[in-house]
Amino acid sequence: MVRVVLVVAASVLLSGCGGAVRVDPPAPRGATATACATLNGRLPKILDGAERVPSEPPSPYVAVWGEAEIALRCGVPRPAAMDPLQQLPEINGVAWFADPVRPALFTAITRDGYVEVTISRRHETTGVLADLAAPIKAAFPA
């Protein structure tokens, strides 16, 4: 997971180069893979003013907006730093774990899987997470 954050961060630094943004895709299985594929089709084309761009390699489990300003990976493992009994804040009905070590990394916690979102400082975190809540809830019904 650290490698993905570093890859996304490097992509931000190299964003002037254009083209697809490199993000390592997760490999979800079963119901999680199905929900992630559904989520991909429901994600907005524009998120907090940033347009969706291709990722490299192409994956139904990855979405990127802007020049790696916002990156989403669906079907990631449970965050290692998350206490399973921890009370998490909800935004529009979706519980979000904020990584205590990497303040730009948030993970939506659903019954059938985890959706990781990295948000650059250029964007308002609560607004981005709020905009992602409806598609996540639709793809991962309670």
Rank of each mutant, 00 (worst) to 15 (best):
37 A>R: 15
10 A>K: 09
108 A>V: 05
61 Y>G: 03
10 A>E: 14
51 E>C: 08
41 G>A: 14
60 P>L: 08
95 A>E: 06
9 A>L: 11
63 A>T: 07
74 C>Y: 10
20 A>N: 08
96 W>C: 00
17 C>P: 04
70 I>K: 13
33 A>K: 10
74 C>T: 05
30 G>E: 00
67 E>Q: 12
101 V>P: 04
103 P>K: 13
107 T>Y: 15
45 K>S: 00
58 P>I: 02
17 C>K: 08
48 D>S: 10
56 E>D: 12
14 L>H: 09
113 G>C: 08
107 T>P: 01
112 D>N: 07
42 R>M: 13
49 G>Y: 13
114 Y>S: 02
121 R>K: 10
82 M>N: 04
62 V>P: 01
100 P>V: 01
26 P>L: 05
52 R>M: 07
110 T>F: 04
9 A>T: 15
80 A>W: 13
121 R>G: 04
107 T>V: 15
46 I>G: 04
64 V>W: 11
102 R>G: 00
13 L>W: 09
96 W>R: 07
47 L>H: 13
81 A>N: 07
97 F>K: 12
107 T>W: 15
106 F>E: 02
11 S>L: 03
66 G>V: 04
15 S>A: 07
107 T>F: 15
99 D>L: 07
115 V>L: 10
25 P>S: 10
40 N>D: 02
81 A>I: 05
51 E>I: 03
60 P>S: 09
82 M>F: 12
33 A>I: 07
90 E>N: 01
101 V>K: 14
64 V>L: 06
114 Y>M: 04
